[in-house]
Simulated scan of single mutants.
Amino acid sequence: MTPRPSPAAPARPPIAPLPVPLTGVVPPVCTPLTPEREVDVASLTRLVDHLLAAGVDALFVLGSSSEAAYLTDRQSKLVVETVVAHAAGQVPVLAGAIDMTTPRVLDHLAYVTGAGADAVVVTAPFYTRTHPAEIARHYRVIADRSPVPVLAYDIPVAVHTGLDPELVLELAAEGTLAGLKDSSGDLAGFRAIVTGVRSSPEITGFSVLTGSELIVDAALALGADGAVPGLANVDPEGYVRLDRLCRAGDWEAARAEQDRLCALYGMVGVGDPARMGTSSSGLGAFKAALHLRGVIDCPATAEPQVPLSEGETERVGKYLAAAGLR
């Protein structure tokens, strides 16, 4: 008997070249969950549609707002596959490859690029104390193995190590890094990187992105290329409008829009600090807002985060109403 041929494996989505530099609004996409804490694929695709309809410039999955630290590898892979397939090349998809050490990051790198991510976003190593030379080695090894551009993610509140601006510029000049998502809170350091990129002829196509919701207008005025604000899940139109106003040089209107978004960002503090941490409150508020806006089916956050109470959720609704979103 002639053996039946095995069914062909599904083709991996093509990996598109990343715009050089990447500019505009790049929401760090939340990960909707079911009440059983599994990835809610239907809600995730609606969230992608919500963001694309607003005119965002790229999508970033498996970052802090995606609850990447809480997801299993199986769930993380599903998130990347779902978003890449649903975005279908309309915008680039960046994926976090975030873990404690270089070998573990390389494992993440394999499945996120295999799923079609257009670039990877990588923090410094954490858990063990690292020297700047080890951080540099970490990024060089990853870039050497990566089929897509590598962006650094500076988030010292999570990894307990800040990225030195001189090191970032060195890695940019040698082509190891294609960009930076800066969530350091160090505006002076951020400015040093923006200035260094602008004044260094050997650095080309390097994207400098702020991770702050609150100073996007200031960052763009300094010369940043774009923003990766978690609140853009809730109000992507607002951040796209802010970005376009800044690029048009209408700084007065941009300041007014930034002020509105800053007021909306107050929702991240609705959670009672006596019973929950800032992550539970902030991510819980984003998901509650998306649920109230009809984008996702369930506002659940990953374990062991504490859910918002009914009263706290009502306060989120008041922030939406004040911002003109309900």
Rank of each mutant, 00 (worst) to 15 (best):
L308R: 07
A124G: 04
G223E: 11
D144G: 13
A9C: 07
R46K: 10
P92V: 10
V83H: 04
L151M: 10
A322T: 08
R137P: 13
S43K: 09
G179W: 00
D40W: 00
A302W: 09
H86G: 13
A85I: 08
F60E: 06
S199Q: 15
E252S: 15
T161C: 07
G266E: 04
S212G: 06
A285N: 04
S309V: 04
D154T: 00
V84R: 12
A133T: 14
G175I: 06
V208S: 01
G284P: 06
D250P: 10
A85F: 04
V93E: 09
A133H: 11
A136E: 15
H50M: 06
G205Q: 02
P3E: 15
P304F: 12
D182E: 02
A133R: 15
A232I: 05
A53P: 07
A152F: 03
L283D: 06
G189V: 03
G185N: 07
D235S: 05
V240F: 10
G55E: 08
R12V: 06
A58I: 01
A178R: 13
C298N: 13
E36C: 00
G223K: 13
T301A: 09
T130V: 15
M267C: 05
I135F: 10
A85L: 09
F190S: 03
T204M: 03
P307I: 03
T2A: 14
D118S: 12
D186H: 10
M100Y: 10
Q90C: 10
A172E: 05
T72I: 05
